[in-house]
Design a protein around this nucleic acid. Structure first.
Length: 968
RNA sequence: GCCGGGAUGGCGGAAUUGGCAGACGCAAAGGACUUAAAAUCCUUUGAGGGUAUCCUCGUGCGGGUUCAAGUCCCGCUCCCGGCACCA
């Protein structure tokens, strides 16, 4: 380490005064003000804008510091950078806070915005504040309403009935997130379902496009792409129409039209509209009771997947169009009204759920798809073993298991006939055996009955009952088989095998079956191939105050009409205290005049989902100060798509899907020239911290816990890592860190602590490490300011040797690495590590005997420049101290000299029999040529010694990598 | 259940295209400075053995491919996330 001559007078790293000096500098200089009309290469960086809920913690900081690092580097690259910020300010928490404090939601929101802005300033995180948007202000939501009207005019916004959760105690509609554990989050009352007419956006029109265009998003994380795929949930199948005992037919969606012949019953969702018509008088009470229970159960919560199947027979029947069989119609809550048509054809032999249901309620199960693995099992109960059975089975040489209960034979498809023959001819009188898998049959002494139809199912049950006598309870053949040990895995499968027991389609191979049946359905006019999506239309109506009012007017004479553009925005009424009510409860709000006939009319009293506000804000930033139009088409086309979008993975589905949908919709309408809003997406991980919890008194602040005991009851507290949140009392306040160590230290540690896409634990020790590094950096440069004065940074690398040459190479290698890590790899932790390595080498070099002044200058300049995006305050200060007069942001990002990357002599590891045994230095030229490299290595004394007296089998020489020698 | 992602020293993590495992930082131990402590600086630090120059083992587990595997293939275990009775 350097021994500075004037140690006692050395200036200490006074981060407070340094950071105060530069805190306003960058924004005052306008470095972060993007010129909309600029023609240089642009870079639109965007962080997901926050909901202003209170002060931000160090975990939030991670998000914005990433953006600040990237944009500072891009500015130095000479790009026209746009990094705007705004507030996703509508929503429930503000409304709740307003209710709690008896203030207006805006009061709460405004205060939080001020706090957050000050926090950004303290972090040194810069935005183009001239473009700030706040979704709850009329100059923004005017355009949210404009967007609604555009969608309405293009048929993409429509009204229909939907169920909401209504809390009778609070006398208000609850948002889904207000229903916690099946009860109102505030009063604990179970909510009641209520049907209201509500607005929807027709996102399903874009389902296929939203799915297809995921392929375009090459620079999105795979997991987000997958989540969106799952959410859209495309599945290919067919719609099939079943006639019924009521007048109306039942239409079902199935992904397996090839299993139609096995559809032995139908199941409707309890709330399916046809239930009423199909229900017979005898069943009416039972059906009503079940419907009631289902309605309540769905409100209480989705139960786990593996709960027992329940359901009730309606008394009505449908007709299977494939084989004319009567299929009883049931209702059950495992069929969802919200997917497909709300009705299914149940194929119990090839669907686990239908199988369980059929078994429980005694409905016939007929296999119609062959096994693809050819496995089969035949069971002969001990009582059915005739005298010759054992010998006969031995004779055909099949594997079998014997137990007290009987013999379980394992034939393959080829042995089936021989096996059945052997069993049948050796059955004891009045007994039977069974076979399942590649073939389903009951083997009676005088007959073999295949389980191939509902009739044969009945016949089998009758004959078995006769032979068994009293105690026989099975209602179906499959029920008999289900009770035989060892059979269960062969009774139901969902593979695509050849069709069997399916009339003229029997024998159709599995890879064609779906298609051929679909075509046949279409020919017969009883169905057709259909694509179904899990994605539903987007319900945007909210019965709340704190949101953008839906700009629709209802007139008794003229019907429904949008508010004319000139009358936008429809402002939220300014009322003192809102409480739990919606707009309908505010006197005077609904009253308006009809835009068509000027007669009295009513306003829509709902507000829009806050996801609508955030589904287009990235467009508004381009022309946010334009009061006359939402955006300028040319400007928006130039600046978008967003080059880099960064935010939490919790928005991987809804926000990103809605933003993509709105972009596509606006593009279709001709408002935009692009149809994907975000070219590149990055989702950062959360910052976790220890949280303390007492089983009795809940979450505790760390300072409350002494000797891991609860301060109130003395009980031992549980500790675990959780992402920082106020409710878990484990947030780290950046103000405290900044006060103690400075913003640069927080920034450096935040970027250094781990890969940015992963969750990570905040560590107090880590912070001190970052602080120590900045102190070392400060001390080294400040104590060497004299040596740097008036030196030109142009290095003549020719005469450099030894440590000098090594440092020179390190400087250039580090520039390359840090550039790639920041701009391409999103690997800030390794960029910081590389800078630390450069610093360590620089320190050692300075402490040495010979110091090349130009090299020192170049190294220090480069170090300060490439570190500056991470720690802008200290770097800006040092930059001035070492004699520069311009701001760092006016400097070009340093470039590396390619010739500096390669060393003159390179150390080549030598493996002998797979283990590294030596390292040989060879010249660069030698290393480039495999032959020369091999020769040089074999000739080296160290290697010679190692392989002496051994036979060389093989030598692999890979230039730039290593040499591997195989000896014996 | 299905779909993603992950597992590397005491800890956070690095190894970018199959090529020297453990960069960088933290923590710990020893030393220097100090009356002392803190701060700072120096040294050591995957495990085991020889204690020198070196050898053996080692990236969740079990196999495999290869001159060479944290990295590729097959089969598991555990953890995290998403979806979940989706027909």
């Amino acid at each position: 380490m350097v021994e500075p001559h004037s140690d006692k007078h050395r200036e200490l790293y006074d981060f407070k005064s340094i950071e105060d000096r530069w805190r306003n500098f960058w924004s005052e200089q306008g470095f972060f003000r993007a010129r909309t009309e600029a023609t240089e290469d642009k870079f639109y960086y965007l962080n997901m804008f926050p909901y202003p809920s209170g002060s931000l913690h160090v975990g939030h900081g991670r998000n914005y510091i990433i953006g600040d690092v990237i944009t500072r580097a891009k500015i130095m690259r000479g790009l026209q950078v746009l990094n705007p910020m705004g507030w996703d300010a509508f929503g429930l928490p503000a409304e709740n806070a307003a209710i709690e404090h008896e203030t207006h939601p805006w009061t709460f929101t405004k205060k939080n915005i001020e706090i957050a802005k000050e926090q950004f300033r303290n972090w040194g995180v810069q935005f183009d504040w001239d473009r700030e948007v706040t979704t709850c202000l009329p100059d923004y939501y005017k355009w949210t309403q404009w967007l609604f009207i555009q969608l309405y005019k293009h048929g993409l916004a429509y009204k229909k009935k939907a169920t909401v959760n209504y809390c009778p105690t609070c006398d208000t509609v609850l948002a889904n997130e207000q229903v916690v554990g099946g009860a109102c989050e505030r009063c604990g009352t179970p909510p009641q379902p209520r049907d209201l007419k509500q607005w929807f956006f027709k996102i399903t029109d874009f389902a296929q496009q939203l799915l297809d265009d995921l392929d375009k998003l090459e620079k999105w994380p795979d997991n987000v792409i997958k989540m969106q795929e799952n959410w859209i949930g495309r599945s290919e199948g067919a719609k099939v129409v079943f006639t019924t005992t009521a007048d109306d037919p039942i239409t079902v969606f199935t992904t397996r039209p090839d299993t139609l012949w096995g559809a032995t019953f139908m199941v409707l969702a309890p709330e399916h509209p046809l239930v009423d018509k199909l229900t017979t008088e005898e069943q009416r009470d039972a059906i009503a009771e079940y419907q009631d229970m289902a309605a309540r159960a769905s409100a209480i919560e989705r139960m786990s997947t593996d709960r027992e199947k329940t359901g009730v027979f309606t008394g009505g029947y449908a007709v299977n169009p494939a084989n004319g069989e009567k299929a009883p119609v049931w209702i059950a809550d495992y069929v969802l009204m919200t997917y497909g048509t709300g009705a299914i054809m149940a194929v119990p032999a090839h669907d686990e759920r239908d199988y369980a249901f059929a078994l429980k309620f005694g409905l016939p199960i007929i296999p119609v798809i062959d096994r693809i693995d050819d496995r089969a099992k035949a069971f002969v109960p001990t009582a059915a073993m005739g005298s010759g059975m054992a010998a006969a089975l031995d004779a055909i040489d099949l594997p079998y298991h014997r137990s007290d209960a009987g013999v379980l034979v394992l034939p393959t498809r080829a042995d089936l006939d021989a096996g059945i023959d052997a069993i049948q001819s050796n059955l004891a009188p009045n007994s039977y055996a069974t076979i399942v898998g590649a073939r389903f049959a009951f083997i009676f002494p005088d007959d073999v009955i295949e389980l191939d139809s509902v009739q044969s199912d009945r016949e089998i049950v009758l004959r078995s009952a006769l032979l068994t006598g009293s105690g026989f309870t099975a209602r179906t053949a499959m029920e008999i088989l289900h009770n035989i040990e060892g059979y269960s895995e062969l009774l139901c499968h969902a593979e695509y095998g050849s069709m069997v027991n399916s009339g003229q389609f029997t024998g159709t191979p599995g890879d064609r079956a779906k298609l051929e049946v679909s075509e046949w359905l279409e020919e017969k006019g009883i169905g057709r191939a259909t694509v179904n999506f899990r994605l539903h239309d987007w319900l945007i109506s909210r019965q709340r105050y704190w949101g953008a009012p839906i700009p629709i007017i209802y007139c008794d004479q003229c019907g429904m009409a949008p508010v004319p553009d000139a009358e936008l925005p429809v402002k939220l009424p300014e009322v003192e205290f809102i409480g739990k009510m919606g707009l309908g409860d505010i006197p005077g709000f609904v009253d308006t005049v009809c835009p068509t006939c000027a007669g009295p009319a009513r306003r829509d009293t709902d507000t829009m989902d806050t996801f609508v506000d955030s589904s287009w804000y990235f467009l508004r930033f381009i022309n946010s100060q334009d009061a006359d139009k939402v955006f300028d088409r040319d400007d928006v086309d130039h600046w978008l798509p967003v080059d880099q979008y960064v935010g939490g993975v919790e928005h991987a589905i809804l926000h990103l899907l809605y933003a993509r949908f709105i972009t596509k919709a606006l593009c279709n309408m001709g408002h935009l020239g692009f149809d994907e809003p975000f070219a590149r997406l990055f989702t950062q991980g959360m910052v976790c911290h220890t949280a303390y919890r007492c089983s009795e008194h809940g979450w505790l602040f760390p300072h409350e816990v002494k000797d891991s005991a609860c301060p109130r009851c003395g009980k031992e507290v549980e500790t675990d890592y959780f992402s920082m949140s106020k409710s878990k009392k484990n947030v780290v306040n950046p103000a405290k860190i900044i006060d103690q160590y400075g913003a640069d230290t927080e920034r450096l540690y935040t970027m250094f602590m781990g890969p940015p896409d992963r969750d990570i634990e905040w560590s107090e020790e880590g912070i001190r490490g970052a602080f120590r590094f900045l102190n070392r950096l400060w001390n080294l440069i400040i104590t060497n300011v004299d040596r740097l004065a008036d030196v030109d940074a142009t290095v003549d690398s020719g005469p450099l040797a030894g440590d000098g040459a090594a440092l020179w190479r390190r400087v250039h290698r580090t520039i390359k690495k840090v550039s790639e890590d920041i701009e391409d790899r999103f690997s800030f932790n390794t960029a910081v590590a590389a800078i630390m390595e450069l610093f360590n080498e620089l320190s050692a070099y300075i402490a040495g005997d010979e110091v090349d002044a130009a090299l020192l200058r170049q190294a220090v300049d480069a170090l300060v420049l490439i570190l500056s995006p991470f720690t802008p305050f200290i770097c800006e200060e040092l930059w001035q101290r070492i004699g520069h007069t311009d701001s760092i942001l006016e400097q070009a990002w340093p470039t590396f000299n390619a010739s500096a990357l390669a060393e003159e002599t390179i150390e080549v590891p030598v493996q002998i029999n797979g283990k590294v045994r030596a390292r040989i230095r060879v010249a660069r030229a030698t290393n480039a040529d495999p032959k020369a490299l091999e020769a040089a290595v074999l000739a080296s004394p160290e290697v010679e010694k190692r392989i002496e007296g051994k036979e060389i089998i093989k030598v692999i020489a890979i230039p730039e990598k290593m040499v591997s020698i195989v000896v014996r």
